[in-house]
Simulated assay, not measured.
Amino acid sequence: MARMLRSCLQSLLKLVNSVIGLTGMGMILYALWMLRAWFKQIGGGGGFDSSPPWFIYTFLGLGVFLCLLTCSGHIAAETANGHCLSCYMAFVFLLVLLEAAITADIFLNRNWEEDFPEDPSGKFDEFKNFVRLNFEMCKWIGLSVVAAQALSMFLAMVLRALGPDHESYYDSDDDNEPARLPLLRSQSLRAPSPIESNLPLNNDWSVRIHDRVSK
């Protein structure tokens, strides 16, 4: 029963963790599209002024971080190791704190745009306008991602409490145990001693001496 419950939790953690991975891949694709549009806008120049702005770098970095977090989550779910699950929960918790801080700053601070540096490409303004025009869709997407992160933390916590599957380790040890030889061998397989091999010769010699004495 415990093994079945652990297997279900591992599968659920992988499934929920995949939502975070899909979000990261989407952010990477969007960042690459913005990067391509930025280089196309500046005419493909390679100078200092043609370097990508902070918004594209941030989006790309967050996407890569989410993909790496997804890989670590799959490894932690597969192994059910306590240290891996603890590290995974810590990184997810820090990510949730960062998202909560940014969300609180946006909703509580009217001049929140001044907290961010100026974006020379204008992609940050385009992203803000897109979110404002599609606020309902973006809200549900954001809530889904946050719910997936919170659920992954909860599943990792429960899986860490259950611990790894020790029974499978014991079964594998029993399967790999070498065959043991018997300590006592059968008497029929025991090699004859030199004394036993010389017994017939000694009997013949005593018979010959007895015949000579009788003569």
Rank of each mutant, 00 (worst) to 15 (best):
Leu94Met: 15
Gly24Tyr: 02
Asp125Val: 04
Gln41Met: 15
His74Gln: 10
Ile102Phe: 04
Leu22Phe: 13
Leu22Ala: 15
Ile20Gln: 15
Ala31Tyr: 08
Arg36Val: 14
Ser50Trp: 01
Asp115Asn: 05
Gly46Val: 15
Val96Ile: 15
Tyr57Arg: 05
Phe91Arg: 10
Glu99Arg: 12
Asn111Trp: 12
Leu66Tyr: 05
Ser121Trp: 00
Val64Arg: 02
Pro53Ser: 10
Asp115Leu: 06
Leu15Phe: 07
Gly73Thr: 06
Glu114Gln: 14
Trp38Asn: 05
Gly44Ala: 14
Ser50Leu: 03
Leu98His: 03
Ile42Pro: 02
Asp119Arg: 01
Asp115Met: 02
Ile42His: 15
Asn17Tyr: 01
Phe93Gln: 11
Glu118Asn: 10
Gly44Ser: 09
Gly73Tyr: 07
Phe48Thr: 09
Met89Gln: 06
Thr70Leu: 04
Gly43Asn: 04
Asp125Phe: 00
Leu22Cys: 14
Leu13Glu: 07
Gly73Val: 07
Ser86Gln: 12
Trp33Lys: 07
Ile28His: 00
Asp119Met: 01
Cys67Phe: 09
Phe107Pro: 00
Asn111Ser: 15
Ala104Gln: 00
Thr23Gln: 12
Ala90Tyr: 09
Tyr30Arg: 13
Ala80Gly: 02
Met27Arg: 07
Leu108Ala: 14
Glu78His: 15
Gly24Asn: 02
Val64Glu: 08
Gly21Arg: 09
Ser121Leu: 01
Leu98Cys: 03
Ala90Phe: 14
Ser18Ile: 02
Gly122Tyr: 01
Glu126Pro: 01
Gly24Gln: 02
Phe124Thr: 00
Ser51Thr: 08
Val92Pro: 00
Leu62Gln: 09
Ser18Arg: 03
Leu108Arg: 11
Ser50Cys: 06
Gly21Ser: 09
Leu22His: 04
Cys84Trp: 10
Thr23Ile: 09
Phe107His: 05
Phe116Gly: 00
Leu85Pro: 03
Lys123Val: 04
Leu66Val: 00
Glu118His: 10
Leu35Thr: 15
Ala101Tyr: 11
Leu32Tyr: 06
Phe59Lys: 07
Ser121Asn: 04
Glu99Asn: 12
His74Asn: 11
Met27Val: 03
